[in-house]
Amino acid sequence: MEDSINVEDFDSLGNEENEETEEVPLTAAEVIELMEEAWRNEKFAPDILPNKSEVVDCLLGQISYMEENLRIEQHFDDILSFWPGLPSDEWRNDPVIPNINSFVFLKSKNEIEGVVIDDGTEQEEDLVDFKTDSQLIISYNSVANLVRSGEVQLI
């Protein structure tokens, strides 16, 4: 794409501890990548991950732009009008508690040393090192923080 998009506060997408606010220009293709990453993480994580509303807004903007480009307004209207709305209050009576120990598949994006493995026995903590691109099946609570920081991708 020749147009690039400026996303404010984009640092919150990656490293939440990063205090510096920078405008990172991203191409539409890169925004799609982020969206897809968020989709896959959310799909496989047992708990609810931080909202990526910046990515969604950014992509919706791009879609409006593309719909003019491609002249398929009808189709996109159908998708965009699908918005199930807020759930009723009934869930408060019977909250679903996720099993954050459940097992997930992941791919490591970086070298990560000394990940503490929770094996359920709370004794003799096992440590494991992830290599870049290595894939594992592991309990989610051992890696939940790495999913949030974007260092690993759930697959």
């Binding site: 099993n99 120990n101 459940s102 097992f103 598949f105 094996d119 359920g120 026995t121 099946i137």
Partner: peptide, 19 residues
């Protein structure tokens, strides 16, 4: 999926109980 993750979830529960 989901067979293997589910089986490991159960084993995890059993270890916790045994502990």
């Amino acid at each position: 999926r989901p067979l293997l993750p589910h089986a490991l979830d159960q084993l995890y529960r059993m270890r916790k109980t045994r502990k």
